[in-house]
Structures are given as C-alpha cells and as structure tokens.
Design a binder for these strands. Structure first.
Lengths: 202, 202
DNA sequence: CCAAAAATTGTGGATATCCACAATCCGGCC
DNA sequence: GGCCGGATTGTGGATATCCACAATTTTTGG
C-alpha cells in the first residue's frame, strides 16, 4: 500500500494549509475534520503516518490515540500541539507516539518528521512481513519437532538429545531433517541465525 | 558500587526535602547545589540515577545533561521541571533522558521513578559487563580466525570455507578449534547464540 | 638475526551428522 | 474398519567434524 499522511484536525485553515504543503512535497495526504471521522475509516493495514491535533471538539487527539492503541494501530503518530503540557507529552512518547510538533511550525521541519515517520513505518512493515513468514513456519512444526529444535539451539549433540528425550538417535535425525526442511535451513547455524533475527552472512 | 541518587538543584529547600524523602526510603543520596559542583565530582563509574533540576543559576540542567552525554554518562537522568516546555521535553527524551517530573510532585510517584531508573542502570551495568567480556575474547582472535568465524556463522561447511579461503580443510579445522577455544564454545551453534546475544537455552 | 606467533598441511583414526530404503505402532477422523 | 499423519526404529553407507601427533613456512617484534 502507498504510504499516506493521515491528517486529523478540526481547524479548516490548518487542514487545508497542511494538505497543500504535503502534496507540494509529493506526499499522499488524506484529511479528516474530526477524530471520529478518521476512526470510522481506520484499519490496521494503513501505511504512512498520522498527523494528529491534540485539542479538538468531540473526541480529542489523545482519546483517539488511546483508542488506536487499543485497536492495535501501527501508524507512527505525530501530535500537533498549540500549548505545552510536559507530562502529557512524556506520557504519550512513552506510550509510543513518534513526535510532537508545536504550532506554529516550520514547514521543512514538519515535512522532515513526516518523512522520518513514514520511513519508520516502512521498516516496521518489512520486519512484520518477515516475522509473519517465520511465524507460519514455526506453527507448522509438530510438538516433537519443537522439542528437538530447542535442544539443537542449545548446542546439544544428537546423542544427548536422544538421551534427554528417551528416543533413538535415528529418530532425532528424522525430526531434525523434517524441522530443517520446514524452516528452510540446511544447518543448525542457519536455524540459530534465523531464530535470532540475524542476517545469514556472506 | 552501591546505587546512589545524585540530586542537583540550586534550591536549598527542595534539596533538603528530597534528601530527606529519599533517605527515608533507604536510598543513598548525595546532593549538589549546582551543576558545576556535580560535574566536578562526576565520573563514568557512578551507579544509580541523577535527579536534575532544569533551571539553575550558572550552568543549567540542560547544559549539564548535554555535557554529560558528551562525556559518556550512563546514569539515567530524571529531570525536575517547574514549567512545561514540550519541545525541550521531547528533545531530551529522544536524547535518552529517562523521565520528567513536574514540581510539585507526589512523593510516592517520584520514588517509584527513581527506583525504576536505578533498576534500569543495574540492568545496563550487567549487560555492559557481559559485553566487555565478549569484546575481550573477540579482540584475542587472529585475523584468520575472524575470517573463519564469519564463514562459520554464515552456516558454511569446512570444505566450502577451505575453498573460499584457498586453504586446506585441515587448516580450517585448526583455526576453528582455536576460535572455539578462545570464545569458550564447543559448537558452531553455541558460537552463533553467543554472538547474537541469546541465552544458550536449557 | 633470532625467537615467538601465526599460518599452513598431512596422516590416521574416532565420532557426529545425514539419509535412502524399509518397517511398525498409535491416535484421530471419516 | 480403513486411511492418514505423527512418532519411532533399524541397516548400511556416505559425508562432515574433530583431533593427537607431527612438521614446515611465513610474519612479526625486539
């Protein structure tokens, strides 16, 4: 999905100016006049980032943020704020907000932060895709294969694994081969690297 | 070293009250009336956390924070602030500050954050000690051993490694054995786990 | 130049891993 | 009951890893 800047602000003038700015920088932009309007369109597959005004009529920016967290939102959130409130800023950052920008803001500064937020979203997307693929493979393993895998990853020899599980070495070999096939690896080191998220190397 | 709360505030009343509070909770506390006084005592081995007032005569809390970062400070820093300033809070958090507490604060709330900061410092200490030990071992490796290690971690067989390095398989075995000895592992999987920071397993 | 470290290689033998081919048993499902 | 997937095991043979014992060559530092 093409990254989009989702802009939520009940001030028409701000919304129009920001839309214009973002589009002049070749960024996709969709704007919403209320938190409720955005929430009605929200889904977990959105890509890009969210520019969110804190103070609005109806549902506030902070309330929307909390609701999105509950729903499992993954868009980076940049808050637009006109009045400082340190505990709220600290608290939101700790909850995972990406940034705070105070009005009035510098155009270039804002666009840079938006670009950074979009780049972060892309990186998270790629990591999630990779993780999902790994997850599917792990789910395909039988109970016995999982046991054998844990012991392999502990660096144990087949003979030791056989002793610990009270089975023959031949059986360990069978599970091991099946496990490697399902995980798409050829050696125990590849499996270890795969499980720890490291690149396979040269 | 015993964890200590380092308190830096030019307001005598605040400093005395905080000292009393922290000591009533069995926390070691050392207070300083100025940023300069703390800086003169600072060293990189301090353990605990730093409670730092933002606004002070002479060097400000923020200036001290930046200076400490330059010096490689590792103490978690909790800022005490009497007046909100969101961009400054956001910026400091992104630079690695641990938290912000606005005056007047709740005693229990403050102590909890101090305890959390001290616990974080302890965890970081343990991780640094472990990392240093690994670093020393890595530094003991010869150039050839390093090359062989990279190829082992890539999951390659000795025969392939020999081909790539234009040496005999016997030589690969020698380097491999020496490498495992220096790194304190018995198998390639153990080495892989060690290098990726994973626990060795059951 | 000399000593030590690093790199390299070989032989023979042992252990570890891998697998084609084959087979049996058990539990769950239709 | 029959079928299927999972678990288990064996045989024989091949490849991979490990290393004691031994030796030579190259590089580095004093």
């Amino acid at each position: 999905m093409t990254p989009t800047v989702f802009l939520v602000d009940d001030d028409d003038a701000i919304r129009d100016a920001l839309s214009w700015l973002l589009q002049s920088r070749d960024l996709n932009c969709r704007s919403f006049a209320s938190a409720e309007a955005f929430l009605a369109q929200w889904n977990s597959e959105l890509a890009g980032c969210l520019l969110l005004d804190i103070r609005m009529g109806g549902m506030s920016g902070l309330e929307l943020f909390d609701r999105l967290l509950e729903l499992g939102n993954r868009l980076p959130v940049i808050f637009l704020t006109g009045h400082g409130d340190v505990p709220m800023a600290v608290s939101s950052l700790k909850k995972g907000a990406f940034d705070f920008v105070e009005k009035p803001f510098d155009d270039n500064e804002l666009v840079n932060r938006v670009l950074e937020a979009i780049a972060l979203d892309s990186r998270r997307q790629a990591a999630a895709a990779s993780s999902g693929s790994l997850k599917g493979r792990l789910e395909s393993l039988t109970s016995r294969e999982r046991q054998v895998m844990a012991l392999i990853l502990a660096g144990k020899f087949n003979k030791i694994i056989a002793d610990e599980l009270n089975i023959s070495m031949r059986t360990v070999e069978v599970h091991r081969a099946k496990l490697f096939e399902k995980m798409g690896v050829r050696t125990a080191v590849e499996l270890s690297q795969l499980m720890s998220g490291q690149p396979p190397g040269p």
